[in-house]
Computed example of a mutant assay.
Amino acid sequence: MMNKIKILALGDSYTIGEDVPQSESWPYLLKGNLENRGLSVELKIVAKTGWTTDELGLAIEQSDLKREYDLVFLLIGVNNQYRGYCIDKYRNEFRRLLLKAKSFSVNNSVFILSIPDWSCTPFALEKDKSKISEEIDAFNKENFEISESEGAHYLSITGISRRSADDPRYTASDGLHPSGFQYEKWVEKIILKISWPAQI
């Protein structure tokens, strides 16, 4: 097993951990988990609250990212859905982002996280929850099929996010984003998906 690994996380508010301490965001929880296993972890995050696929793509183009990461994670699309962008646009841009993510991986260890369902949060109380949930499912159908076709590992965390409807521990204080408690559940699933020691 390698003693040192590099992790790249690409995304939006779910990746930076909006409204939770940095240490409770899922990339940093993952870092801590791996460090507790005796690894030295270097973490790079390219994400910003509100980013859509095209905005993340632009940020990547303007970055100095190289093919040097042992684990690459991509989670993007909720803001495409929120802004009402067409799913065809998402499909095309997500595929390009996935190919970019693969180009940064030294061993083709790319992980796609599904889009959480924010219809289950207090923020969506007066919105059309069924419509939101159906659209999230449609976007996730696209990113799953693209992930399968490109040989990326797929992690569905949408079901975990839907626990927010019945358990307030899963939602941050802003009533919209996941809590550190929820991100811990994501990391438990991520750890199970990583092949030891082949991928790290």
Rank of each mutant, 00 (worst) to 15 (best):
L125S: 13
W118I: 05
Y90E: 09
L125P: 01
Q81N: 03
S130A: 07
G151Y: 10
I115W: 06
S156K: 09
F144Y: 10
L43S: 03
V110L: 06
E35C: 02
S40K: 13
L71I: 08
N36W: 03
L74F: 04
A59P: 03
T49Q: 06
D117A: 03
N80L: 00
E55H: 06
S105C: 10
Y85M: 08
S133M: 01
Q62M: 09
Y90D: 11
K89Q: 12
Y69T: 11
C86P: 08
Y28T: 15
E126W: 13
A59I: 04
L29F: 10
S114D: 02
I76N: 04
L99G: 12
L58P: 03
T49C: 10
S156M: 08
G151L: 08
L65N: 12
K100G: 13
L56V: 11
G84L: 07
E55W: 02
E134G: 04
N80K: 11
R37L: 05
I112L: 04
S40G: 06
Y90H: 12
L98A: 00
S105V: 06
I132V: 06
S156L: 08
L39C: 00
T121S: 15
C120H: 11
Q62R: 14
G38M: 08
K31M: 15
E55V: 05
I87R: 07
E145L: 13
L34H: 14
H153F: 12
R37C: 00
K141Q: 11
K102Q: 15
N79R: 11
C86H: 12
N108K: 11
K127C: 01
Y28Q: 14
L113V: 00
S130Y: 13
P122S: 09
A124T: 01
L43K: 09
I112A: 01
N92D: 14
Y90C: 13
P116C: 06
A59F: 00
Y154Q: 07
G38S: 13
E35F: 05
K129H: 05
N143L: 14
N79P: 14
Y90P: 13
V78E: 11
N80D: 15
N33Y: 15
K31A: 02
E35N: 06
T158R: 14
D88C: 12
H153S: 11
V110S: 04
L34K: 08
F73E: 08
L65S: 14
L125H: 09
I87V: 12
R96L: 11
P122G: 08
E145Y: 07
G57N: 10
C120F: 12
E135M: 08
I112M: 00
A59L: 07
Y154C: 09
L30A: 08
A152T: 01
Y82R: 08
N107F: 00
Y85L: 14
T49F: 03
L155P: 03
E148N: 07
G38Q: 09
I136L: 02
H153Y: 11
D137V: 04
G32D: 07
L56I: 04
R37M: 10
E93K: 08
F139T: 05
F123A: 10
L58G: 04
N143D: 11
R96E: 14
R91P: 10
N33T: 12
I45A: 12
K102D: 03
R95E: 15
